[in-house]
Design a protein around this nucleic acid. Structure first.
Lengths: 205, 205
DNA sequence: GTGCTGACAAAAATCAAAATCTGTCATTTG
DNA sequence: CAAATGACAGATTTTGATTTTTGTCAGCAC
């Protein structure tokens, strides 16, 4: 128990386990300390408040979502295939999480809800990845966009129903896969065609 | 007070007012009855449960959103202009509601949250309107889509961040207008170009 | 001295008793 | 007799007293 020294990492590992078992509402700092075999005062040496501990747990959870996506963003295959795969991987990861363990997903969702700053950073990271893919697509001559950053944000926004936890209730419904495909195909179509960002050249007449 | 006879309409009008003033949590059937100057038993003559009363209020609220949109859907101008205006009207209506009276908006959101069936019907109505516009666009030769229904659903989904209450917190942020324009432009672009629905003809490659 | 403890005050959560509300229905009213 | 009432049982919410938790910090231990 007291063999290893008490690090932030170790606290986070344990906190995650306790959170997983008890849910967010019933987890206290004292619980986490007890699970570690230390006094709760020690935890405040590593995290100034309980909320900051929650934020850190949320950040790790979000990182586990973002990491596999980063790989896709940094490959150098055809951008359109990577974009589709990136979006599907994101949606699929989220979907699996809810369907596998709704309880735990709800815990993390609540956690993330409160950790506004952490989520903002996460979204920035994801849109940066999208920007990279779209920029690659432009370099490859597959996409034609005025602003890759704006287009990336647009892609992220347009797919919000398939990755934002607020819509998780619908992810189990029968039609979602088809809905997802429609939206992704629209996105591909838009990026491949004229400017995906408010340039002067309006599509259609 | 007791001059008019007690109709469902009159109950709904009053319920809406009480809800507006007290919020959903603090509004009881007794409150509504008191505001009407009748006994609460009378209300159960028109609505079987408190929930059904809530549903009816939610339905009226949603109808007030859908009605102006129906006008746009039934015009016969150029579809792309109507689509853009339809989407902006929807987003703008929602946005005004939150910014004007967040308290009241929250009340209605909670109401709608619970009135699942009512919301489903509302969404069906809206996507039907979109289908009509897109079908018109196809007839006008402006849009090329394999399935107007699927495309309509795609358009609705892709703009979810701008009209779904779960995202209302962001509607006050500075960048949203630009974000909205990007997404709408992408949509126009996709509809104007190749099939907006999973046909065999993939965009790109 | 660095890292941890545990007692403490203030804040928040819990619990059970009391009050209120929902939904029913036999009775009253017009 | 159609429409409304109000007393009632069971469910839910409120209230306020009690317990638990958070976050601090003086001091202990290594």
């Amino acid at each position: 128990m007291s063999s290893e020294s008490l690090t932030s990492e170790r606290i986070l590992d344990t906190a995650e386990g306790v959170l997983r078992r008890h849910g967010i509402a019933k987890t206290t700092v004292v619980d986490v300390a007890r699970a570690l075999g230390v006094s709760h005062g020690s935890i405040y040496r590593h995290f100034p408040t309980k909320v900051s501990l929650h934020d850190a747990v949320a950040a790790r959870w979000l990182a586990r979502v973002a990491d596999p996506l980063a790989d896709i963003a940094h490959e150098d295959g055809p951008a359109d295939e990577r974009l589709r795969r990136w979006l599907r991987t994101l949606a699929e990861a989220k979907r699996r999480k809810v369907l596998d363990d709704p309880e735990l997903f709800h815990t993390y969702h609540t956690l993330a809800e409160q950790a506004r700053g952490v989520v903002d950073e996460h979204v920035r990271e994801l849109t940066d990845q999208l920007t990279r893919i779209i920029r690659d697509g432009a370099a490859q001559g597959r996409y034609r966009v005025a602003s890759p950053e704006a287009a990336a944000r647009g892609v992220f926004d347009a797919t919000v129903r398939f990755h934002h936890p607020a819509h998780s209730r619908e992810w189990g419904h029968p039609g979602v896969d088809a809905d997802f495909d429609v939206v992704v195909t629209m996105i591909q179509s838009a990026l491949a065609a004229s400017g995906a960002e408010g340039g002067e050249r309006e599509s259609g007449v």
